[in-house]
Design a protein around this nucleic acid. Structure first.
Lengths: 257, 257
DNA sequence: TAAGACGTTGACGTCACGTCAAGGTCAAGC
DNA sequence: GCTTGACCTTGACGTGACGTCAACGTCTTA
C-alpha cells in the first residue's frame, strides 16, 4: 500500500499520516526504491489504534505513550480524566446555550439594543429607574452595565459593591429623580459651585444609611479607583462623585476601625 | 486607568487587551507622554461588550462586525448558528462519553488488552471463535480488528464486506477450526503445494454460498486490494487467500453481469 | 541610587493538522 | 517519445486566541 491508499482506507488525509510519522505516534514504514513509503496491514492496524485513541479524546502525546510501552494500567486513569474534562465541557456548553437562549428570547421580543451585553436582572432594574432626559442618569446607567459585566468576572463580585447598593436600593432609587436632576444642573457649573458640597453630603448620607456592613472591602483606595470612570461627567459632576466617595471612605474607616 | 488596571477590572490579561487592539475589536485609547495607554470608562465598557460577545461564542471577527456597525439584525442569525454548533458539539461529547464509558467498563472488568480499539460487538464475536494456537487465526483476528476500525470511518461500511460476511456467518465460523487448521498446516509449504487449490476452492465456495447479493461493490480490483494485508502470512497461506479472492471475484462477475 | 513593579514592541510556541510550493515518479494515451 | 494527470516527496507557512519570553523604557519607593 502507498500512503494514499492507507489514508483512504481509514478515512484520513495523507497529511495526517505524515504528521503522525513526524510526531512519532506511527512508525515510519520502509521505503521503495523511488522513496515512496510502503505500508502493510500492521501499519493499517497501528493507524487504526491511533485514530481510535484520538477519537476517544487522547492527545497525540498521550496516544504515543499508551502505544509505546504497554501501560494499559495508565490508560483507565487517562480515560477517567478525559471523561471528567468532557463532563466539564458539556456543562459549559449547556450554560452557554442557556445564556444564548436568553439573548435570543430578547431578540425575538425586539428588546435587543446596544445593551445586549447586560444581564436580564440588570435590564429589568434599569427599566424601573431610567430617566432618558438625564445625562447623569445615562452615565450611571453605563456604569451599571459595566459593573454587571464585571460581576461575571471571577472574584469581582464585591468590587464596587458600594455603588451597586447605592443604585439598587429601593429608597435611593425612589429619590433618583431628585439626585439626577440636581446632578444635571451642575453640567456647566464651576468647580467651586456651592451646590456641590451639599449634594455630595446628601448622597453620602443616603449611601451610608443603606450600605450593609462589609460591603466595602478594605485595602483599596476608592477615591483613586473611581477616577477612571469620571470621564463621561462634567467637572462639577465629577467633583460631586469624588467628594461622595471621600465621605463614604471616611465613614467606612470610622465605623470599621 | 492603565492597561493592567483595566485588565484586572474585567479579569483578563494585558496580553488579551493588546491582542484585541491588534485585531481591531477594541479601539486604541490615547497615549500618555510616556507612551502608556490611558483608558477610561468607555474603554472598560467596550471591553466588557467584547468579553460578553466572546463568552457567548462569537469569534473576535464576528464580535468586531457586530460592534463596528450596529447590525443587531445580524446578531440573532449568528447566535442561532452558534447555538446549532453548540448543540452539535454537545451531541459529539455525549457520544464520546458513551464510548468512553464502554471502554472504562471493560477496564474495570479487567478485559482490557491491546484490543482496546475494538468495538464490543467485535470482541463478543471474537470470544466465540478465537483459536489462540492458530497463527492464521491471529492474522484473521487482526484483520477483523482493522475492519472494525474501518467501519467507523465514513463511507467505508461496505469496504471488505465480503470478508466480514465470510468471517461473521455462523455456518462459516462453526467450521473455523477446520479452516484455520488447514491454513496453519501450510505455514512452511511451498507455493506449488497441492493443498493450496482445494482449500481456496472450499473457502470460496463457502463464501459464495453465504455472501448476500450486492455485498461486493464493483469497480474495485479486490485481488489487488487484498495484497497489502498478506504481509503477516506465509507464502503458501497468502496464495490461498489470493486464489480465494480470485475465485470470489469471478463468481461475482458471473452472477452480477 | 538601586530595586521592583509596571509599561512598550516584537517574536515565537501552542495543537492537529490544511494548504501551497517546487519538484520527482509512474501509467496511460497520442 | 511526449504530454497529461495522478500520485509521491520535503519544506514552509497559516489557523485562533492568546501565553510566554526577550530586551528595553518608565515610575515609585526605600
Amino acid at each position: 500500500m502507498r500512503i494514499g491508499e492507507l489514508a483512504a482506507l481509514l478515512g484520513v488525509s495523507t497529511r495526517t499520516v505524515r504528521y503522525y510519522h513526524h510526531q512519532g505516534v506511527l512508525p515510519e514504514p520502509p521505503r521503495l526504491a523511488n522513496g515512496y513509503r510502503e505500508y502493510g496491514m500492521r501499519d493499517a492496524i497501528a493507524l487504526a489504534r491511533v485514530r481510535r485513541l484520538v477519537s476517544l479524546g487522547l492527545s497525540l502525546d498521550e496516544a504515543r505513550d499508551v502505544i509505546a510501552d504497554d501501560r494499559s494500567r495508565e490508560l483507565p486513569e487517562i480515560l477517567v480524566e478525559i471523561d471528567a474534562d468532557l463532563a466539564r465541557q458539556e456543562q459549559e456548553i449547556r450554560e452557554r446555550r442557556r445564556r444564548l437562549a436568553e439573548v435570543l428570547q430578547r431578540a425575538e421580543a425586539g428588546t435587543l439594543g446596544p445593551d445586549v451585553t447586560a444581564s436580564p436582572d440588570l435590564l429589568a432594574f434599569l427599566q424601573t429607574v431610567d430617566l432618558p432626559a438625564s445625562k447623569a442618569a445615562a452615565w450611571d446607567r453605563e456604569l451599571l452595565v459595566l459593573m454587571d459585566s464585571m460581576a461575571a468576572a471571577p472574584d469581582q463580585e464585591n468590587a464596587f459593591a458600594m455603588f451597586e447598593m447605592l443604585a439598587a436600593d429601593p429608597e435611593v432609587t425612589a429619590r433618583g429623580h431628585e439626585f439626577y436632576r440636581r446632578l444635571d444642573e451642575l453640567a456647566d457649573a464651576e468647580l467651586d459651585d456651592p451646590r456641590i458640597a451639599p449634594l455630595a453630603e446628601m448622597l453620602a448620607e443616603y449611601s451610608v444609611r443603606h450600605m450593609p456592613a462589609g460591603a466595602v472591602p478594605d485595602g483599596t483606595d476608592w477615591v483613586e479607583a473611581v477616577e477612571p470612570f469620571l470621564d463621561g461627567l462634567a467637572p462639577a459632576q465629577a467633583e460631586v462623585v469624588r467628594r461622595t466617595v471621600t465621605l463614604l471612605a471616611e465613614a467606612s474607616r470610622l465605623s470599621g476601625g
